[in-house]
Design a protein around this nucleic acid. Sequence first.
DNA 1: ATGATAAAGGCGAACGTTCGCCTAGAGAGA
DNA 2: TCTCTCTAGGCGAACGTTCGCCTTTATCAT
Lengths: 339, 339
Amino acid sequence: MTATKVTLKDVAARAGVSYQTVSKVLNGDMQVAPETMERIQAAVRELGYRPNRIARNMRAGRSFMIGYSWTQTEPGQVNHIPDQFLSSMVREASAVGYYVLPFPFQEGSAQIDAYRDLIRSSNVDGFVLSSVNYNDPRIQFLLKQKFPFVAFGRSNPDWDFAWVDIDGAAGTRQAIEYLIGRGHRRIAILAWPEDSRVGNDRLQGYLDAMQAAQIGIEPGYVLRGEGTFDVGRAMTLHLLDLPSEQRPTAIMALNDTMAIGAMAAARERGLEIGTNLAIIGFDDAPMAQYLFPPLTSVRQPIAEAGHKCVELLVALVEGQPVAQKHVLLQPSLIIRASA
Amino acid sequence: MTATKVTLKDVAARAGVSYQTVSKVLNGDMQVAPETMERIQAAVRELGYRPNRIARNMRAGRSFMIGYSWTQTEPGQVNHIPDQFLSSMVREASAVGYYVLPFPFQEGSAQIDAYRDLIRSSNVDGFVLSSVNYNDPRIQFLLKQKFPFVAFGRSNPDWDFAWVDIDGAAGTRQAIEYLIGRGHRRIAILAWPEDSRVGNDRLQGYLDAMQAAQIGIEPGYVLRGEGTFDVGRAMTLHLLDLPSEQRPTAIMALNDTMAIGAMAAARERGLEIGTNLAIIGFDDAPMAQYLFPPLTSVRQPIAEAGHKCVELLVALVEGQPVAQKHVLLQPSLIIRASA
DNA sequence: ATGATAAAGGCGAACGTTCGCCTAGAGAGA
DNA sequence: TCTCTCTAGGCGAACGTTCGCCTTTATCAT
């Protein structure tokens, strides 16, 4: 209705009280006569008053914003995770009166500068970090600054900070146990470079499951490389070209993109996936269900992770006691036709 | 270094001038002696001063934020578009001194309430809308409020507002012309319900290309339904079960998800995709290249669209003259093995 | 010498809140 | 009647900027 901004003073004038009184009444900080209350509420309604968030934040010395920088998916890479994670954070943040402020991911020292700038300009009350790894400089920096943050993912064990993570080892273990239960013994794994914390975590699940089943780890079955289609395909071709008595009967990849590369390789070698060769991925990308055959994969509770990150961060920011600073969520194996 | 917030007054005290002078100097609004300039800059550097954005926005009566509500991808749907679009907006906004404020998409009247609230609370200076359709209530509302916004997508032709869109008709036309050039005459199209503006736009390209080639439109070749895998598969099964002299030799789908459904159907009928049956999708989802066979698809310049939306919106917000209120971007056909 | 002009910088006010303290009046106990 | 207490609400200040206007001093032409 009114084009111009409605302020507390406008409401106060209409209700016949001082504007500070309106503020207090709306915030429940003051007892007033029922009749006054009614007048104030009517004025608010009629004018369509909403508190000016900027002024409120100014006064509070806070911004009620959560900074979040995310690695954009490189074009051509299949990655639905960031999208889902952000979406879930936005929903949860909105529910508790916060907003998520996404800012561009940057490489090198510019990255820390971006975080520093946001802190100094009072733009955010805290951060959620994703794609964390060993020795993450952002964690180091924020710890030193004593600035509130929550990491989605673990880092160095001796650093003390709040994190939410998905139990990658458990995911892989579940998948490998499933394969073993189906009678597989020669199980290969397409893993990531050693500097990837997530990769090592997921790999550990493989090692654990194999050992628990008393199957020796064949070093030649543990391949490491970047998590791309091409690498997954090349590794699988290598495995399939082993002499037939050494050739694995099942292959697990640490992400779906590699698994899809593995499927392509199997097709090239004329193998029927799911019968001649079992393949399992990790991530349960939306496309997994539409592949031929549909890909068995480990699904991560991404939405819940986003939710937990925000919940934890808000508690930290507001100085509430935090029940548990570490949240480890369990993934689940989605069984389809590929294994 | 300093844990506490550094303000203009701190800088001023150290430089030995009034804090207003510091403000003006930093904003280039004032000439000072070179020596004073040097002292101020040194103080800024040493204290690590950054202007408090909240206070600055308060004074400016603006927030330098762009509101953006996006339909989260339903789990199981393949949609990389929103992710890419948001990422591009964030980058561009950051380059011109703005931030993007994502807020949750809501259904029904709550949706307009969300926009209204953001306006009234002075939270955003403008909006970018995506997933617009005919009679979009958000456009109606924002036009009435005279609040700045840019739509990613067109709506009713008689509404006057700024938009950025991708020329869907041109994309489909290009694909159909390619098919015709390869000798196809019996070309079917898996289209969307009639209430979808985007769907109708893309369909028009099919009609245009067929007419230009003087190929009559076979009504049975134009199928409409939701853009899902199951619908795409069902439609394709229907087409493939036509008597052989009526069976289409090529099928275009208005998105990749339907095209993947079509591929599944073709496989079920024992057809070799790319030789016995040509299939083309739309969107060029990241997975398209990894399908078997890799899917020919129409790629949209999403990043450029995000860029243009922000550019246009910022011009509107700042009252700069806008060269063109309508931007129509051209998609391109990515040819792979499926057609 | 004098007034005009420009350069360098100070000062008060305002943006819209919230917060703490103050006050006018009413009611009540002695 | 006097004081004491409670209630309902007013008032000034402050958050950190930016903006407009004012003051001081030096420079210069007359």
